[in-house]
Design a binder for these strands. Sequence first.
DNA 1: TATATTTGTAACTAAAATAGTTACAAAAGG
DNA 2: CCTTTTGTAACTATTTTAGTTACAAATATA
Lengths: 135, 135
Amino acid sequence: MYSTKLSVSIHIMSVIVLMEGQPVTSEYIASSINTNPALVRRLMSRLKKAKLIKTSTKLGVTGLAREAKDISLLDIFFATEDHQDLFSIHSNTNPNCPVGAKIEVTLKHIYDNIQTATEKKLADVSLADIIKEFI
Amino acid sequence: MYSTKLSVSIHIMSVIVLMEGQPVTSEYIASSINTNPALVRRLMSRLKKAKLIKTSTKLGVTGLAREAKDISLLDIFFATEDHQDLFSIHSNTNPNCPVGAKIEVTLKHIYDNIQTATEKKLADVSLADIIKEFI
DNA sequence: TATATTTGTAACTAAAATAGTTACAAAAGG
DNA sequence: CCTTTTGTAACTATTTTAGTTACAAATATA
């Protein structure tokens, strides 16, 4: 189960769009999420580094860096989630057992395939698709 | 990111199959995983309740409850993973903000769709597919 | 250019989840 | 009947996530 970072980041970006280009502060956004401005700023910082939003000291967030229809949930996921692997694999298995010796590579291969499918689904949803629901 | 429970459970079931019907104990399996027998037994217990393996006190695990080709990774996932939702959604958002008021339902709807796709991929891989790699 | 405001970030604390461990009653094969 | 093993409770340790405080650096704008 991934953290709430993707969800919170989508929330942040939705508020930015709904404010129609007027600068918004981390404090304003935090009041919609009902959390701390610093937590919002941490995510903002990552979204800025990933070139998804534009920020400025003194003004706050001045807007998206590109159109909402051209930003996918996968873009936001990659920008903000720390541990991006879908499944964890246990390590230090016994190399003297045929299962223990190969399980890590075997699972990695299978999980990679599943993860690619999941990421493709995330790529298929744009921020614009989500914002439709709020207007 | 999901826990290692799925990976460890696949490991457990693989060892059971590789032992070709001979009973195996949690201690034996734990030595292949390089972990504690109690941890293995906790997962064994869930796999038994989900009717995926057969166990007996005194003997240990006596085998799979059905053929490896008829057991999918999704079966094992459902049996053993605690928190099965793919993405977390933050709660207690501000109901006075158009985003805060609707984000929870909106995200739930979108995430459900993605999760279904992920589960379908898990359902497409059988335990037999994995065991092939060990023999 | 001075100033007020806001970001960006470090350094915490708190809470929750995961993994690992010990211990033992209950079950059951032989 | 006795020995072995499961099944489970209760605990600790570790890691991750979320939340908080604090402040230097940046910058719009008066």
